[in-house]
Structure formats: structure tokens, C-alpha cells
Design a protein around this nucleic acid. Structure first.
Lengths: 203, 203, 203, 203
DNA sequence: CGATAAACGAGACGGTACGTCGCGTCTTCTG
DNA sequence: CAGAAGACGCGACGTACCGTCTCGTTTATCG
């Protein structure tokens, strides 16, 4: 996340910042992003669509890039609560169950937004860490957790390269969206699971 | 490719366009792209490095993006001559041998170009074709060939998902370059081979 | 009560245009104009000297020429207070005394601006009005006044062509500056007075 | 004049320069000059109107300014042959007779061209000498000659400032054309003669 | 008479300034 | 004070023009 928690000793003088605007602005940003892409998007467009002033945006986010990062990050979070993850008893079952989560293949706008946010990365090298933390790491953590659970119960090889394997599906999805511009279908994700991950970890 | 076709009724008067400049300009563009990324690249930089006037660039390409698209499309291709590929007798040996091939060393610039150019893919869907064709597909073809050879000699599972596996290293490299912004080291590539590909195809 | 004459539909929202910048920019323009002439002057030079952005200039003036026209029109005028003019008792004394007036010394820049700006007069007929009003007419008025005073006291011919004579020194100065590109020295001005004006009006 | 004498050791090989094009090009230049002014005039326009290549122009004149100078200089020369000057027996008669020469007030195009060429001066300080020699000096020489003849026959003061007086009508005409943008009428010229020159030289 | 060398129309070339537009900041006014 | 509106400094974009160079062609003189 880019903007953070209220300062501990805020004297809260004057008018309070209207945080209901945050969501409206972020949603306007996503609209513009989906319509025009990151490069075509201008801060004035977002402000105009949100009926907000530019200063209001910059009071909340330091730059266009951070606004977009936050917009994407807040789009839909993978639930970070491991206790709510599916537990089907098999690694393959778990992974396939994750596919149904709306976080991956949710719709046209989301995919265009994802492409849009990727296109921003090289503009703002200093922000890749934020993007990684906000978008990638949560999903990797889930994969890591599921793999480790499978190791713990003796289902898969103990020496599986968890770190690399956890990365694979993210890398494959990104690649498909960005380069091949094909939708991330269930079949595609299953083929990654069945063609790569499961074979690689079987004993 | 962006500009091409011979005009049908060209009386071809006046000084001819110097097409040797095309390659020099495109090469200068790739240099700048690798150095600064797409956003940091300016048309004046490219013109200066190519010792050309800006008008000369705009006579050939309608915009900065079209210049970049063409530059990527015209990047030197990996030699598709399969007969020159290493043949160590084992799939792992072949894959590791590929790492040392100049495609990696010389591919350094290519990868930086790749990273630099990502910031415009959402604006220019046709760019992805260029990138795919120039950077990704040649390497996938090599992987496909090596995997198939290993299947043919019975070294690995006959039902290995060659297409998906051939994609993996490219996807992982892309991801590392774009998202993680870490160099593509030999160790990283070996960990992909030993942690994913080889385990996934062993009988 | 204060704003009864507000523009009909001007809601005057947003930051007000800082009209103190107008004068600073115009003065910078005159400096550059005096230094380099109209052709040598670039909008970036003016912006840099005024520590302003180019867009700020173009928000106020539609083009380089309009900026220059305004700059000339807004040049400080010669003080039209005839009571402060020298009164030496003779026309020749008055005219020579005018030479020492700061209108010449301080008028150095003015003349260089004048020279600089000539290169655009054929494009901008309205510029000639500005030049005439700002540079020429004030001095002609002084000449006219001094000549008439000399007539009134019977010093010179009553039928002297005041209008034409008042124009002469300005025309000669213009010619010297523009065509001969020689500095407007005291000796030159004295030679106009003694070689033309005084002989022409003597009884 | 800008370009001139044949190189002494010209081997005169190859195709001869077609000097009939000179006049056509200069005339085209005058047309464009009258239409658009010096600043609005482009070398390509002149070349196109003359159905000539740009190189053909630059083979003859070193720059746009020199082309224009030549065009104006060749427009209509004051006859430099003093023996053909009018000799009416009086200075005033001579000067008035000169007015009828077509060189001064000849028409709308000529005046616009004159304004156009004046507007060029500050762009090319190094060319003022040429302009002076081509346009101004010939007319001054006539004035000088007429004044000196009047002195020699004892008609006017022997100590008249010939140099300054010779300049006056040029300066006044220039001023009227450039600054006042009024046509150079016969009445105007007569008023200069009768209001300034003649009074200034009478004994 | 054919070779040769220069001039020709056309237009691409390297440069430079123009006028536009976007980012991120600052200023004004309203609630 | 926060918020909407929009001007500000900055800097890159894409265009137009200058003066040069290179095409392929035409024309005059020389061998």
C-alpha cells in the first residue's frame, strides 16, 4: 500500500480528509486505466471523472504511478487469511480450488488494468517493490503455504524448490496477459498445474 | 513491421531515402531503450545518438512508439539453426549449455530492451507480437526442440507438456526482469532448470 | 458592492493568473529582444530569463509575435510632462538639452528593441502602432512642443512645417539604427539639429 | 549585388548555368515576398513558384536573405548615370523631377516588398552593408550630386550639410513606409522638399 | 559523335525553434 | 483547514523551415 495509517499524534485540526473520496478516485483511475492504458491516462482525466481536484489526488498519492498501484492493489485482494484457504487434502485440489477465486480471471476490465499496470513498471523502477508486495507477494505466499502444507503431510517431495515453484503461476499468468494477450482461462491454469507444478513435485 | 510496401506509381524523383540510416537509427533506439527505458527515452536522444535529425526519424516512423515497435521487431534474431545447438546427451546438459550461449550474454541488452519496452505494450498491442517474435519465440523454439529430442531418445516422459514447459523459462525470465528487476544470473536459470523443468519431466 | 462590473458569466474559480508575471515576462522579452533581435530571440530564452515556463507565456500570448507586440506596446513611455522639459531660451539649446535627457541614455535599449523588432513589422502591421506609440510619438510630441514654443516667442519662422520637422530626428535615428547600424551618438544628433532643423527654421 | 564576376580560371566544362532562370527566380521571390512578407516566405515557396529546385537557388545565392536582397536590388535600379539626371536649373526643380522617377512610388507590390526587405535587416546584420549599397546609397548619391551641383552654381549655402541632407528623404520615406504604413505620395515627398530640405539650404 | 562534367528538378538530410500537452506543485476561493 | 479549479515551472512531443547533399536527368563543350 502506498499511503498509510493516520499519524499517531494527529491533532486533527481543520476539516477532516474525506476518505470516501479515496474509493471514488481509485475507481475513476481504474476506469481511465482500462479505457486508455497507463500512458494514455492523465491525472486530469482521473480528477475530472472523479469530479475531484488534482491537489486532492496528490494529497493522497505521491504520483500517478502510486495512484495506479493503489488502484490496482485495492481492486481485489487475495484473502491473506490462510485459515480461509481451501483444504481439499491434495495439493492439486488446493491449487485448482484457488482458480475459482475471482482474483485471477475476473473480467475484461481487470485484465486490461493488469496490462496497464505492468506497462508502468519500467517508468518507475523504484516502485517495483511496492507492486511486488501489493500484487505478487500475496499470491506467492498462498502458493508457498499450499506447497509447504503438502510437504508437511508428505504428499510431495521434501526437497521441492518451493520458492521457484511458488513463482511459476504468477509468471505464467503475467506472461499470458502481457505478451500473448490471451485470456487467463481455467484450462490454461490447469495446464500449468498439471503440466508443470504437479509433475515437478511428485515423489 | 511498420513501413514497407513499394508504392505502385512511384516516379521516384529526388534524393532517395537512405535506408542504411534505418538500421542505424533503430540500433540507436535500442541502445537508448536499454539505457533509459521507454519513458526515459527521448526522440532527441535517439536522433543524437544516430547523428540524425529528428525529421529524419519522423519521416520514417509516425511516432516514438512506432519507432520502438519497429526497433524491437528488427532486433537480431537468435539463430534458428538447430544443427548448431549443443548436444550434450542429456536434457539438463543441453539446457545448461544454452545458458552459456551468447544468447544470454548478448541477450543482456535484449532483456533490458524488453524491460524498457513493457511500459508501452498496453498502448500498442502490435508491439507484443514484435516482442514475442523477436525475443521470446526463438528461445521457445529452442526449448521445444531440446525437449522433443529428449522425448525422442526416451530420456524423459513422453507425455511431458512440451508447450507449457518451453514457455516456462521465458516467463520466469520476463517476470524476474520486469517485476523483480533482478539480473538474470546463471544461478537463477539453473534453479529453474533443476527446480522445475527437470523434476517435471523425469520419468 | 465592490464587484458590480464582474464579467457576465465568470465564476472565477481556481488559481488566479498572476499578472505580476506579465510585466516580468515582457521585460525579459525586451531584454532578449535588445540582445539578439527578433529572429535571434527564442521563446525559451524569454521563459528562462523570466524564470517562467513556456506554457505560462503561451497562456498569455498566442505566439512569439504577439508577445513581442505587447512587450513593445508596454515599454515605459517617455514622461509626457512638458513642464519638466528644459527651457534654455533657444530652440537649439532645448533640442541639444534633450539629447542629454535620460531618454537617450535609457533609450539605448529602446532603440535596440526597435531595431530588433523591425524584422517582424511586415508580418504584424499592428506592431507598427505599438512602436509608433511607445517609441516615436512621445519624442515627436516633445519636438512639436519645442518647435511651437520657438514659434510662439518669434524665434523661428512662423510657417515652419512643424509636423514634418518633428518627425525628422526620429526618422533619421530610425534609419541610422536600422540601415546603417551605427550607434546614435551625440555628434550625430547634433549634426541633425545643426545641419537640418535649425537651418530649416531660421528666419 | 551579391553574386558576380566569373572566376578568372573557369574551365567552363559541363552545362552552363542558365541565367534566364535568375530573373524568373527573383521575380518569384518578389511575388512571395509581397504576398507573405519576409518571415512568411520560405525558400521552398520560391523554388516551387519558379519551378526550380532549391539547390538551384542556393547555387546562386548563399542564403534566403541574399536572395531577397538581390531580388529587391534588381527590382528597379535608380539610374546611376548622372548625366541622365534632370537638370531643371534649380535644386527644388531637380528634386521634384526625381519624384516622377518610377523608383520611389511605383505601386502596391513595391511598397510591400520594401517593407518585407526592411523586416529582414535585423536578422542579418552582416547584410546591412549590402542593402545600403544596393538600395540606399544610389539614391543618396543622386541627392548628394544634386545638392553639390546647387552649391557649385551658388544657388544654396556653401556650408550646407550635404551628407545629412542627402539622407533625409530616404529616412523619411523609409519611416513612412515602415512605421506609418502610409503610401509614399507625391505630396508627402514635396512636403519634405519644401518643408525641410529647401528651407535648410537657402542662403 | 560519344564522353564528360556541370547544372537542373526533386526531395532527403542534420539541425533548431515553434507551439502543445502532461506531470507534479502552488495559489485562490468556497464550504 | 479540505476540496475544486486551475495557473505555475519544467520538459518531451511532433511540425516546419533553413541550408546541404544526393539522386537521376538534361545539356553543353571537348576529345
Amino acid at each position: 500500500m502506498t499511503q498509510l495509517e493516520t499519524p499517531p499524534a494527529a491533532p486533527k485540526l481543520g476539516r477532516k480528509r474525506d476518505h470516501t473520496r479515496d474509493a471514488e478516485i481509485l475507481d475513476a483511475a481504474l476506469d481511465v486505466l482500462a479505457d486508455t492504458g497507463y500512458a494514455g491516462m492523465t491525472v486530469d482525466m482521473v480528477a475530472a471523472r472523479a469530479k475531484a481536484g488534482k491537489a486532492t489526488l496528490y494529497r493522497r498519492w505521491a504520483s500517478k504511478s502510486e495512484l495506479v498501484i493503489d488502484a490496482v492493489a485495492c481492486m481485489k485482494q487475495i484473502d491473506p487469511d490462510f485459515s480461509k484457504l481451501p483444504d481439499t487434502g491434495s495439493l492439486r485440489g488446493d491449487l485448482v480450488a484457488m482458480i475459482k477465486a475471482p482474483s485471477i480471471a475476473e473480467g475484461e476490465r481487470k485484465m486490461r488494468v493488469f496490462a496497464g499496470v505492468m506497462s508502468m513498471i519500467s517508468d518507475a523502477p523504484e516502485l517495483t517493490e511496492s507492486i511486488h508486495a501489493a500484487i505478487v507477494e500475496p499470491r506467492m505466499a498462498v502458493n508457498r503455504f499450499l506447497l509447504q502444507r503438502a510437504i508437511d503431510r508428505g504428499e510431495i517431495r521434501a526437497d521441492a524448490d518451493v520458492e521457484t515453484l511458488a513463482l511459476i503461476s504468477q509468471a505464467m499468468v503475467s506472461y499470458r496477459v502481457l505478451m500473448l494477450r490471451e485470456p487467463v482461462t481455467r484450462d490454461f491454469l490447469v495446464s500449468v498445474i498439471d503440466g508443470v507444478i504437479i509433475p515437478a513435485v511428485r515423489k
